[in-house]
Design a protein around this nucleic acid. Structure first.
Lengths: 338, 338
DNA sequence: CTGAAAGCGCTAACAC
DNA sequence: GTGTTAGCGCTTTCAG
């Protein structure tokens, strides 16, 4: 009648007729156990439906088998850009193969962030994956300083030793702009991303480099900042057209901004791509369904996620004394209206 | 020099010149502590940068402050339909206000599901939120049977006592179809959802009810099954048009299916809404940007998430002897092309 | 190879 | 009010 509470190691040990230590060894796959004992233990475990208690284990091992995923981004952007979804999918896939659990954390408000730091510092997770850092965020340094392994998604802005995974944003942007130039465009505008994130900075750099390569002048009037959102794309496109009515191409540093730009162009009766060609970044399904289909730069977002997961695991295992950062290449997806 | 390991309760107690029990009381907000002691303890805590050890606490309290979010859905659908994102946002918002953590779990493969059940049964979480159950899934019953509080998103198909939160899918579908009828449509086709989920069943039921109300005949040739995906919408729309070339309206049980239908209609040069009117379900931003804008049924997805979070917390606290399920109403968003 | 014993850091019940 | 104590379930020496 004493089946009230869940079975523990002792219950199993008693049932299998061995000591508690042996059961523990079997569970943790130690080789120093006789086949006989092993079988008895396994039988007892299934009969009893025994499940190890994580808290107890982690109290002594000091490991939790949990990785925190921290997204420092507005929810709009996080759900609006498929990039995040892809990265997360890559992470979950890779992690689930190793039996690690993912703790999901949005750090939007300041309160969130403070609570989060306390939490992460509390050693409740074995490592942290930080996505989409803004500015020179001290969080990764704090965490690393306290000994928590961290891997970033997107290069940090300041100097850091924290390993990161990123896309070749500069190369992608350059490719996109060179493509525009190769089709004869001369007045290529740029709707740029936030300059407090490397992703924004790098894409602008790529744009500039391509202009130089192509022998085109760099014209401030052709550059307009945005925050990656569709609304920003609309605003920026209007400003650009007002300033330079005869521009013949637009490089938008994100897909949503490209869609915003398309909308404005359509409103004004400007033909795409005849009058103005548009190229986006961070390819989404929407890009090929749009009218006209949008040429974009595609990132290997899911592989980025997998790579992050791989890196954090290696770091947790204590490998990687000198953790390598990874930069995955991007690819231009050309979609010409037929 | 003994600052190697993180400070514990004892460290704090020593520093504050009190006993360990007192420190624990302060941390857990017990009122039976003198102001003097409380201050000393708090000072020691900040000076030491003390952070409670979760594992140790949960070993004795048997609570983890973690809620599992289980999504039994393909990743395509999960990221493709904004519905999920909205629900998750609602959950995270509500939960973070209570300091609970969310453990994110995708249960796509069979292996995932088995590992998951073991995990959840292992009492590593205080409760579970299950989203998008298929068929008569035994998981919620297993979990409830083992004493783990569960709240579902979407009514389960079989009989259960497990509380759930759902949208008024039937009412929404009825509203949509009645709207079509009110604009004079007589041959209203339906692209239905999976009939192993209540969401699919209910939307079909609503369609049928509306037909009856409007005095329209129920014609099997006008119904075509789909799995909510855009591809399914394409296939279904083609089949419908082949069978009933003169249909004058389509009710699609999901937005992606509606977009698929729109695509086929456009391909065939059929004017929307002049020749055929289309209504979708589960309103997405894409609906208003599409050409023409799509009339859809909007669910209160984020409130659903919040409600789920509220319910599970109540259940964990042991309230709700008879847990009430909630059904939130839907709203028809009419977007007529101007 | 295996049992016994010593904690991991914390809460809660119990005395003072 | 506050210190003390007894575990929570597990891993890990340490003997045998």
């Amino acid at each position: 009648m004493e089946k009230r509470s869940a079975p523990t190691l002792d219950t199993v040990a008693a049932r299998a007729g061995v000591g508690r230590g042996t059961v523990s060894r079997v569970i943790n796959g130690s080789s120093r156990v006789s086949q006989e004992a092993r079988d008895a233990v396994n039988r007892a475990i299934t009969e009893l439906g025994y499940v190890p208690n994580h808290a107890a284990r982690s109290l002594v091992t000091r490991r939790t088998d949990v990785i925190a995923l921290v997204i420092s981004e507005t929810e709009d952007r996080m759900w609006g850009e498929p990039y995040f979804a892809d990265v997360i999918r890559g992470i979950t896939r890779q992690l689930s193969e190793s039996g690690l659990r993912l703790m999901f954390t949005l750090a939007s408000t300041a309160e969130d962030r403070s609570r989060l730091e306390t939490y992460l510092l509390g050693k409740h997770v074995d490592g942290a994956l930080l996505i989409s850092l803004h500015g020179d965020d001290p969080l990764p340094r704090h965490l690393e300083g306290s000994g928590l392994p961290v891997v970033l998604c997107g290069a940090p802005v300041g100097e850091t030793d924290v390993p990161f995974v990123d896309s070749d944003n500069r190369g992608g942007a350059r490719q996109a702009v060179e493509h525009l130039a190769s089709t004869g465009r001369r007045r290529i505008a740029a709707i740029t991303g936030p300059q407090d994130m490397s992703v924004g900075i790098d894409r602008l750099t790529g744009y500039r480099e391509a202009l130089r390569t192509e022998g085109l002048p760099e014209d401030p009037a052709l550059m307009e900042p945005g925050d990656f959102s569709e609304a920003a794309g609309v605003t920026a496109m209007r400003a650009l057209l007002d300033r330079v009515p005869d521009l013949d191409a637009v490089f938008a540093a994100s897909d949503p901004m490209a869609f915003g730009a398309l909308r404005v162009l359509r409103e004004r009766g400007i033909r795409v791509p005849e009058d103005v060609a548009v190229v986006g970044f961070d390819d989404s399904p929407r890009a090929e369904h749009s009218e006209p289909p949008l040429t974009t730069v595609r990132q290997a977002a899911e592989p980025m996620g997998r790579e992050m997961a791989r890196l954090i695991q290696a770091r947790i295992r204590g490998e990687n004394p000198d953790p390598p950062s990874t930069i995955l290449s991007t690819r231009l997806i050309v979609r010409e209206s037929s």
